[in-house]
Design a protein around this nucleic acid. Structure first.
Lengths: 193, 193
DNA sequence: GGAATTTTATACCGATAAGTACAAAATCGG
DNA sequence: CCGATTTTGTACTTATCGGTATAAAATTCC
């Protein structure tokens, strides 16, 4: 019933996600969004709420669609392979040709005005959650005797996440996948034998 | 001659630097700047040019004052100590209590609108210059027989910079110095013996 | 005590930001 | 064909953005 929608909600959200990913939350204007998504302002507000809600929906999509590799990586049987797949999976995503460089979870709002403080908080919380999930996976590895002696799972998880965040900055600066892979190979050499 | 200035140019620039550092280029408004610096808008334009020029002056100050540790680190006799001092020096700066968390060179404009593209370019170039300086120092180490065999100086420099950029994201997210030091200790374990 | 000079304060500019009111357009069930 | 419903297009609102015109205030030289 009613006039039929003239755009695809999923496509529009995908475009919004890519815009926020490339330009950050504050760097993306409603005009950028409506022009990119091919919809009018009232449609945007009607279907996605305000700018902040749209960003959170875009972030949710990012976690659902782009972060699949992370959940898959956690299922690897060996902790060392988990780490490698997490690092390379992030590098792949950060340098994929079909999407913006870097990481939405960092590009979105690393430093910002008070107006975006809530978004910034959500992104920090998101990164914390990812790090925590990796730490829990490593704790499981400890139980399974699949973890280097004298090494803290939480510390190693933070180290891995720090490297991925570093590669996110590198990717946002134009580094290509091969360069990130070399970094990752070096990062993994510190894995205690 | 003329009416005497009622503010200290150096103090004002310091404040501007800290504001940009904490809120990024686009997240810092002229009102933030004038209120923080304690000067009026015409004074800001008269002494520092427009917002973009002010940012570049603040960035210059950052490189002169905050990055002293980097130039000192390069003078260490052993490459491995250079790397350690670079990593720890960055971590110290990113978590100093008297200044914003993270790094101006990254917080300033990692992702932004087209309006800030020039600033973004300058920051990317700055990071590239730092990485290049470190790579050159490592190349010198190769000449001096002070570098692990089969290890590329440029690759290792990029690895070290990637870790510092990762710690910058961690610091901007609230990580404390002790946490970053643990990360750095792990990062340095990959240094080939 | 002026004249010249520099900094200050006030008040403004056009452009753009996010967000909305409202009616025309396009569908549905009857 | 007609009312009910939903989406669209246009035009608007208020607030803030970066930037500036202008004149008063405070100094030095003469």
């Amino acid at each position: 019933m009613g006039r039929p929608r003239e755009f695809d909600v999923d496509d529009a959200l995908q475009t919004a996600m890519e815009l926020f990913w490339r330009k950050g939350y504050e760097g993306t204007s409603l005009t950028d969004l409506t022009e990119g998504m091919g919809i009018t302002r009232p449609s945007l507000y009607g279907f996605f709420g305000n700018k902040e809600e749209l960003f959170l929906k875009a972030l949710d999509r990012y976690e659902q669609k782009q972060m699949v590799f992370f959940r898959e990586a956690l299922e690897e049987p060996k902790a060392r392979t988990v780490a490698e797949r997490v690092l390379k999976g992030y590098a792949d995503m950060q340098t994929a040709e079909c999407s913006p460089n870097g990481c939405l979870g960092i590009n979105g709002a690393l430093a910002c005005s008070e107006a975006a403080a809530e978004i910034q908080k959500c992104l920090i919380e998101g990164r914390r959650r990812v790090e925590h999930a990796l730490a829990e996976r490593f704790e499981r590895a400890v139980q399974e005797g699949d973890f280097p002696d004298g090494c803290s799972p939480t510390d190693l998880a933070r180290y891995i996440m720090t490297v991925t965040q570093g590669t996110a900055v590198q990717a946002a600066s134009g580094a290509d996948r091969a360069a990130l892979y070399k970094v990752i190979d070096m990062a993994l050499q510190c894995w205690p034998k």
